[in-house]
Design a protein around this nucleic acid. Structure first.
Length: 458
RNA sequence: GGCUCUAUCGUCUAACGGUUAGGACGGAUCCUUCUCAAGGAUCAAAUCAGAGUUCGAUUCUCUGUAGAGUCACCA
């Protein structure tokens, strides 16, 4: 490529639905390439299909791009260039490169319309693709393809070619599905007397069925990942690395900052074949980035996804601060908190839980004739130690106080009922952590309550 | 079907023509443990097939096979 020429790339989505990871990965590559070469990144909304456009999709594009940090230097709305498209369409017709054809409308109405066809010179077209090398096609198979619905309504192939040229796009970076469109676009470019830009066709992102990712098959819109609590950096890192490896040869590095990705971007290391998008890997990335958050950032993050029902509790903020570290261990993304909430894994931190007496008794004592008496005795032992102690505060401190007792009397026999008395759950963090979080007073209350339940039972 | 493209563990990928084909995700096992989560350790798992070039092929060539994309008066 010409080094004196400033690089201009573009992302040209049509606002006909919310775009998913595949589209945005292409946008990322165009952006990375432009940033790497200190060039321009253009956003062009291709809205020439009035029937299918909707403003919600357009808003979604801006939202996703802003979230990902794919800042554009210029914004174009394709439909606003209509006059220019018409002008060049007329030039093509006058120059004999295109012609008006009277044909029956394809919608089955039987109406005869005047559509514009490109006069195909039927030649071979070859171009260099930055990802896969030279691609040659015989355009004879294409026939005289349609470039405008009528003299006033140019279609995609004409419009992109004109806009890319007028906007000074040097590198057309787009999805592989456009590979088949490229020869006919080059034909139009040549008819207009212009020089084609460089092309890079990025392989398709596939779903788990190995087919092109599509909304119909459940691919989530990019904006949905933001809503679910995936971190921008995690998504950016993960999506960028589907089909591209920025690591040094042999390096196991998987985590890259956006700056590193810009610096390392290179089409020669972009894979030629399609790649399956794996949500498990994204989840892993998200956890990695979650772990990098500062405590304050983590707090703010969790706060966004905590159920409203808990936000009303008076001890909400204090408690969230205390449980933030254990929440971090248990979630992959923000919305996992709502799942935890419905599973009952969150409430007991904020309010005293309902305790099922049967759950208090450890399975190890199930066959014991005096299981209730023994369990009660153990809880009383724990209760006494806690009540007596005036020094302990943290989980570690409580552990040094209580563990010897548990060890001496049977860990399961003691720790299980203690934990269930405190949480009401069969699965939870260990009792020392729980006491550390709930505090001495609350723990005593819950233990006392459990003991009274056992007394009623006996 | 025509055209275009692609081919390394289940998935994402690494490997100047020379490696016991490496890493990560996911999985399994074990350790830690009252349960869960996290953590630690270990293991299983791939060069699509067949020819050719070469002392030597995951790597280069050809053929086959498989898969993908595309064949609109959508973009």
């Amino acid at each position: 490529m010409n080094t004196t020429e400033k690089v201009v790339t573009r992302f040209a989505p049509s606002p006909t639905g919310k775009a998913h990871a595949g589209s945005y990965r292409t946008a990322m590559y165009a952006w990375l390439f432009a940033r790497k070469h200190s060039g321009k990144f253009i956003l062009r909304i291709e809205d020439t299909d009035k029937e299918r456009n909707d403003t919600e999709s357009e808003k979604d594009i801006y939202e996703a791009l802003a979230w990902l940090g794919l800042s554009h230097d210029e914004l174009y709305i394709q439909s606003k260039n209509l006059t220019r498209h018409q002008e060049l369409l007329n030039i093509l017709i006058q120059g004999g490169k295109a012609y008006i054809s009277k044909e029956e409308a394809k919608d089955g109405s039987g109406i005869i319309k005047e559509i514009i066809r490109f006069k195909n010179p039927n030649k071979k077209i070859a171009f260099i693709d930055l990802v896969r090398g030279e691609i040659e096609t015989d355009t004879t198979d294409l026939g005289d393809f349609v470039i405008a619905r009528n003299i006033n309504e140019p279609l995609y192939h004409l419009a992109v070619v004109i806009d890319d040229h007028d906007e000074g796009v040097t590198h057309v970076i787009r999805a592989e599905e456009h590979i088949a469109n490229t020869p006919r676009q080059i034909l139009i470019i040549e008819a207009l007397g212009w020089v084609p830009p460089a092309y890079a066709h990025i392989p398709i992102v596939l779903g788990s069925d190995k087919q092109k990712l599509s909304k119909r098959k459940g691919a989530l819109p990019m904006t949905e990942y933001a809503k679910q609590g995936y971190l921008r950096d995690a998504v950016f890192n993960c999506i960028a690395m589907i089909g591209w490896n920025p690591a040094d040869p042999g390096s196991p590095q998987e985590l890259f900052t956006t700056e590193e990705l810009i610096e390392r971007f290179d089409f020669t290391r972009v894979q030629k074949s399609g790649a399956v998008f794996n949500i498990e890997k994204l989840n892993w990335y998200n956890r990695e980035y979650l772990k990098k958050l500062s405590f304050d950032e983590l707090f703010l993050y969790l706060d966004q996804y905590m159920p409203e029902e808990l936000k009303n509790k008076e001890n909400y903020s204090q408690m969230l601060k205390k449980i933030a570290p254990i929440l971090l261990e248990r979630i992959e993304k923000g919305t996992d908190l709502t799942r935890m909430y419905t599973d009952g894994d969150l409430v007991y931190f904020f309010t005293q839980p309902q305790v099922d007496v049967k759950k208090i008794i450890w399975k190890g004592l199930a066959e014991d004739a005096d299981k209730i008496g023994k369990t009660k005795k153990h809880l009383e032992g724990v209760l006494e130690l806690i009540t007596k102690d005036t020094m302990s505060n943290t989980s570690e401190e409580w552990k040094t106080i209580l563990f010897p007792y548990a060890d001496a009397n049977g860990r399961g026999d003691v720790l299980w009922p203690t934990r269930v008395a405190l949480s009401g759950q069969e699965k939870s963090p260990d009792p020392f952590v729980l006491i550390g979080i709930l505090g001495k007073e609350e723990s005593i209350g819950r233990l006392t309550h459990a003991i009274s339940l056992l007394s009623n039972e006996a």
